[in-house]
């Protein structure tokens, strides 16, 4: 009797659990997993979104990408943003967080709030604000720079192909350094204060304490911060779309904007899928790394 009722609860339980999982799995299948399969499948064809006709192209789209200089420019720009953002956002984020954690007592919350605030502004708005600040004709940046005796770039801050990607990098740092700071600050606050006291007895204070106590204690958080920044650097789209549209002369193209351009402006959807597949491989590899670090933590 008890055994049988146990049996029925188990199977009815399984059914309930399956029903509870179903909405999540259905939504994710339709909008995440099926699209992934379709990207890989579609990358083997030549087609545009309005075509009924798909022409099989084998690995032609991939061959095309690897011999397309703009694809390499886009990939290089992603790498510039990734490495630059790690240096600027994680680097300065760590410094700011350490200062707020150890040295700053008065006004700490206020400054933390200000530095974090751009995180809640949409990148589109951030891009538009900076577009006006950097405007070559009447933007205040030119006025400011001229006032301290430096000549502003002749083609404009965003008009010079050699220069523009670095300006975008700077704006991204303006927006996201506060996020990294807060992330790292949360890790710092978990470091027991007794550690610092013990170290101070041994003569380790200031920078030495930072080097030998703070850094090792937040090692895992730093790894996560670097991974988040790396993923973000490969996903960057909004800022560039708004500020430069990938220009001038494709100099600020990144994978995201190049996929968009090929698929929705030029009508090369198969080719766009091949570039997307490259982005997917990178993203999945980084995701796997992230999973491994969080497991260890």
């Amino acid at each position: 009797m008890t055994a049988r009722s146990e049996q029925t609860t188990v199977s009815s339980g399984t059914l309930t659990y399956a029903a509870m999982l179903a909405p999540a799995l259905i939504l994710m299948s339709v909008f995440v997993f099926v699209p992934v399969v379709l990207v890989l499948y579609g990358s083997l064809f030549q087609f545009s979104l309005t075509d009924r006709q798909w022409d099989f192209a084998g690995f032609g789209n991939y061959a095309r990408a690897f011999s397309d200089p703009i694809f390499w420019v886009a990939l290089r720009n992603n790498l510039i943003i990734v490495i630059g953002s790690i240096v600027l956002q994680v680097g300065f984020g760590t410094i700011l967080a350490a200062m707020l954690d150890r040295g700053i007592t008065v006004g700490g919350t206020l400054m933390r709030t200000i530095i974090f605030a751009p995180m809640v502004i949409s990148s589109v708005a951030v891009g538009l604000i900076w577009l006006i600040i950097l405007d070559p004709n009447v933007g205040p940046m030119n006025v400011l720079v001229s006032a301290i005796g430096i000549a502003p770039p002749r083609l404009g801050w965003l008009g010079d192909p050699a220069f523009s990607i670095w300006v975008v990098l700077g704006v991204a740092a303006w927006q996201y350094t506060g996020f990294m700071m807060v992330l790292i600050l949360a890790g710092l606050q978990a470091v027991p204060k007794e550690l610092y006291q013990a170290a101070a007895l041994d003569g380790a204070t200031g920078l030495r304490a930072f080097r030998y106590i703070t850094l090792p204690a937040i090692r895992n958080i730093l790894i996560v911060a670097v991974l988040i920044t790396t993923v973000g650097g490969f996903k960057v789209f909004d800022l560039i779309f708004v500020m430069t549209k990938g220009g001038p002369a494709n100099a600020t193209q990144v994978l995201g904007t190049y996929i968009y351009l090929q698929a929705f402006t030029l009508g090369n959807s198969g080719y766009a899928n091949a570039i997307s597949a490259v982005l997917l491989v990178i993203a999945v590899a980084l995701g796997w790394l992230q999973l491994r670090t969080s497991r260890k933590a």
């Binding site: 994710m28 699209p35 579609g42 979104l49 995201g256 996929i259 929705f264 997917l280 995701g287």
Partner: peptide, 20 residues
């Protein structure tokens, strides 16, 4: 499986998302 979805960025599946 669900956690694996965390790694997929929307930017990388734009074309099929639009098609669907």
């Amino acid at each position: 499986l669900i956690v694996a979805g965390f790694a997929i960025p929307m930017q990388a599946v734009l074309v099929p998302l639009f098609q669907i």
